[in-house]
Design a protein around this nucleic acid. Structure first.
Length: 444
RNA sequence: GGAGGCGUCGCCUAGUCCGGUCUAUGGCGCCGCACUGCUAAUGCGGUUUGGGUCUUAACACCCAUCGCGAGUUCAAAUCUCGCCGCCUCCGCCA
């Protein structure tokens, strides 16, 4: 959620943000009313409760006096006094109970509306929908396969040639959009994992292996139960969720905590499997492993001060680019438009790698500045001197395995279907320079 | 899965049996002040978090908060029920 003070002092800022996102503006006015009602109800309860406590504090000592009463007359007098107070308190108790219920109801209404308001967009984000992104930079030159004299194979053809990717058996065992990485394919993932973790460690990230199943509170706190809910797997019997990214367990790691501002930024590089239902993407990217239900990913996640968030966002993008450049992939950077940010992000940059057989750039990383939005929802704060206040969180993909593998196979392929290994990756593959098909005898 | 124990405002801890001056005790740590060549020691004061009133701000005051939720009661850290977590033992298990 965003700073509640903004709702009271500058609601137009929220309206404008909602408008730019193409989301409800009316909900802001509903919330203003609900917020006022919530405070009024709480105040009413507080007053009644105070009266009740004042009365209660008189009864205790009186009963003590009653026990020690010296004679019958003073005992009778104390007795009458106690009974009068208790009768008074009794009617008050009913009022307190009713006021409490009303306050809880008003709070629930306001809190529900808060969940429907997305983060304030950064005013530099291009306004519009999915297609209205701005290209910030193109890096590297796509290979000219025509000039090289051969038709490039797509990643699945190469993967099958190398016996590295098996989608047929993936579908047999688990259904469509599941796959096996096999042989050199599996080794390639381990190499990428190690390269990514080495880079992350060098940049001050703490490696983490996270749970892939989380409580509803973690899912909601990171903002994935809003519009994105349809893409989340839910374990109904246990009321748990499969995460779509380790951003969720990494963000929730410090939930309900107060961190020392002097210790920030804290950077984690999380490794986990990621699960996505891909609802509504029927017919899209059905071939190969560009869009799958389960994959592994190294995710960067940062807790920092709100002041430092924008600079950190730039660093995350830089580190993503370093990784993609180490793999010698042509790519471009886009500034994602307001309508495509997701509810938590104020600003988002994607890296898209060139995919030769599609003649297009396709998303391989995404980095978001979620400012204080997730921190407020997850109650993560920082102690700065004697002040306690929300901090900022940011996330960025370092290496989403399937898409990186797609880009490597397609961009570094040779006419015979073998694949040249980028220099940076070779040490992690036992020095191998080329990925080639295994001996026929070893194929199944 | 079964049995038992435990959960108090950073950490440790008193309080829970038997409800009311609990407006939660004490120690450690931390912050401020005093004293003192410096440090240390000592003394005094402060130190959960959230919401609200007032407000330039500070202060002050009110409400909530003793794992979470519900209940009993005029009144709940304390009694009752449910849930969660941790520990020990048993069972199962990579």
């Amino acid at each position: 959620m965003i700073d509640p003070a903004i709702l009271r002092t500058d609601p137009d800022r929220i309206r404008e943000s909602q408008r730019r996102r193409g989301e409800s503006v009316e909900v802001v006015d509903e919330l203003i009313a609900a917020d006022a009602a919530k405070r009024a109800a709480q105040q009413h309860f507080d007053e009644l409760r105070n009266q009740q406590k004042v009365l209660g504090r008189q009864i205790g000592p009186l009963q003590g006096a009653l026990k020690k009463a010296a004679d019958d007359t003073s005992r009778a007098r104390a007795q009458a006094e106690v009974e009068a107070l208790m009768a008074q308190a009794s009617t008050l108790a009913d009022d307190v109970k009713a006021a409490d219920a009303a306050a809880i109801e008003a709070a629930a209404l306001a809190d529900g509306l808060w969940l429907r308001i997305s983060n304030l967009v950064n005013l530099d984000s291009p306004v519009g929908g999915e297609a209205d992104f701005v290209v910030l930079e193109e890096v590297g030159t796509p290979r000219d396969f025509a000039a090289e004299g051969f038709e490039p194979r797509d990643h699945l053809d190469i993967g099958e040639l190398l016996d590295a990717i098996d989608t047929v058996r993936g579908a047999k065992v688990s259904g469509s959009r599941f796959f096996y990485l096999k042989g050199i394919g599996a080794q390639l993932e381990f190499a990428l994992l190690n390269l990514a973790m080495q880079q992350a460690s060098a940049n001050g990230f703490i490696p983490m292996i996270t749970p892939a199943i989380v409580l509803p509170s973690a899912m909601e706190g990171t903002g994935f139960l809003g519009q994105a809910a349809e893409n989340v797997y839910r374990l109904d019997d246990d009321d748990l969720y499969l995460v779509g990214t380790s951003e969720v367990p990494l963000a929730a790691y410090h939930s309900d905590e107060i961190l020392d501002a002097a210790a920030l930024p804290i950077r984690y590089a999380g490794w986990s499997s990621c699960f996505r239902r891909e609802a509504g993407s029927y017919g899209k990217d059905t071939r190969g492993i560009i869009r799958v239900h389960q994959f592994d990913k190294v995710e960067m996640f940062v807790f920092t001060t709100p002041d430092a968030a924008e600079a950190e966002h730039a660093r995350l993008l830089r580190w993503e680019r370093d990784f993609v450049e180490a793999l010698e992939l042509p790519y471009r950077v886009i500034d994602v438009a307001t309508g495509d940010l997701g509810s938590s992000a104020a600003r988002k940059f994607d890296i898209e790698a060139w995919i030769p057989t599609q003649g297009a750039y396709r998303e391989i990383t995404s980095t978001s500045n979620t400012t204080e939005f997730q921190a407020r929802r997850l109650r993560i704060r920082m102690r700065d001197g004697d002040r306690v206040q929300p901090l900022a969180t940011l996330n960025g993909t370092l290496c989403a395995m399937p898409r990186i593998i797609v880009a490597i196979l397609e961009n570094h392929q040779q006419p015979d279907g073998s694949v040249v290994v980028p220099q940076a990756l070779r040490p992690f593959l036992g020095g191998r320079a080329v990925l080639t098909a295994p001996e026929p005898a070893t194929r199944a």
